[in-house]
Design a protein around this nucleic acid. Structure first.
Lengths: 254, 254
DNA sequence: GAGTGGTCTAGACCACTTA
DNA sequence: AAGTGGTCTAGACCACTCG
């Protein structure tokens, strides 16, 4: 009695639906094309709307579909490759990175961030907000936490606000000698504010990239960047030629 | 008429529920503890079971809960950090990596893989299946695609099967001089076979790590590894000290 | 105002685990 | 056999976009 009684069980409807729809997307639809609405699709497949939606959710999670309230469901373009490699040790804001400064606030470090910074929960940190734009769309929202102690010279211009202040913080950071960084990627769901920046609903799936910048053996800053999981593929260019143009838009099942 | 009419709209019930439950997890529950069942919880919060489930799904996505059919819902341990850094250019199977060989087959390259390998769709490739085990649990399932042309010497032992054959393929690979690799991470959903290896249901969210191994300027192998997104945090140790013990198990809202 | 996707309900039955 | 989470239904109403 092998444990592999493969497929004795009936496949769930939504799973089968997802497969069928996925194949239809490959063969019968072009990128950007609008699908029939959910009520019609459900009727056509003879299932309840909730079941149909379960299949659509999966396909959206996989980056095959894009749904917008009040508009409709469209065939998504292939995921865009976003380079997140640490091109040599580099501070944020250096060189030509595609980040756009939003603003800067001062607050107590949130518990998980404080732990990464190896400082107390109520230590003051500068919080710089940035948004990453690629191919005309916002792909990531970032919060960069910089302990006040990392940029001691900054207090002089404490009066400035918004992007001006954010710029000042980054400028101070770049004066420090960066030892190294460590980094982690995990799945998360967008907080309300991030969701707004990314033009998604709260709870949308995101890839959270946490980066710790080390100076003189101690963490000097922590960045928490949330990338849209539906539209992004994070690339780590260990080799020279990354961002290969594998654009499978003309994928055809034939 | 600013576009930022923040929070005029009522928060969705499931979102509010998720927040409340999340706080309760922080303050009133220990890791591994069993929650009340879904019907009770729904009744207690005065919502339909489907709504309660929407909140639980989010929390499970964020790695805070673990649900098992027939058993119940438990508080999940903090995500385990899994090192996926390319510790210098290294072939799979080299040194002490935590992968476990399952088997090996020969098949035509699937379309997306063929594209990455820059070969034809019907070229024959060896497909090595491996599973990565950490802390006693399976965290990742991998398919390693090796074109027959990359390991020409292998045909001699074509007779072997299963793990033996898999081992032979890896051994041949390690004889090649690895130039570099490029890598991408994206969100996906587990295929049925991967799901079985990972002890999850099909469609479970996974982090897909695609690695391309370059030899003499051309791709010699492609690895597609799917990591459980609920339990894993992928770490890239650019610095010496990775896998920092930031075990936030005693996270308390206080 | 018409049409879309997003939320929510109150049920039902199924597959699985455990005792 | 009892209890759990997983699937599915057939409705309803809401928030949003657009002509």
């Amino acid at each position: 009695m092998g444990t592999t009684q493969l497929e004795t069980v009936p496949e769930p409807k939504y799973w089968h639906l997802k497969t069928v729809l996925g194949e239809a997307l490959d063969s019968d639809f072009a990128v950007g094309e609008i699908l029939p609405n959910e009520r019609d699709l459900a009727a056509r497949f003879g299932v309840a709307r909730a079941t149909l939606r379960q299949a659509l959710e999966q396909l959206e999670l996989e980056g095959r579909l894009q749904r917008r309230r009040g508009v409709g469901t469209t065939v998504a373009p292939p995921r865009v490759g976003v380079d997140v490699s640490t091109t040599q040790h580099e501070w944020p804001g250096a060189a030509k990175d595609a980040w756009q400064l939003i603003d800067c606030a001062v607050a107590a470090a949130p518990a998980p961030v404080a732990k990464l910074l190896e400082c107390a929960t109520d230590d003051e940190v500068h919080v710089v907000r940035r948004v990453r734009v690629t191919h005309g769309q916002s792909v990531a929202a970032e919060l960069l936490y910089v302990p006040a102690s990392s940029v001691p010279e900054l207090s002089a211009i404490a009066g400035a606000s918004g992007p001006v202040r954010a710029r000042a913080v980054l400028r101070e950071l770049q004066r420090l000698a960066l030892d190294s960084q460590d980094r982690a990627v995990e799945l998360g769901s967008a907080r309300a504010d991030d969701a707004k920046e990314l033009d998604r609903l709260p709870g949308a799936p995101v890839l959270v990239v946490t980066t710790r910048y080390i100076v003189e053996g101690r963490p000097a800053a922590v960045s928490v960047a949330t990338y849209r999981a539906d539209t992004c593929r994070l690339t780590f260019g260990d080799s020279g030629d990354l961002e290969i143009s594998d654009h499978p838009e003309e994928r055809r099942a034939s």
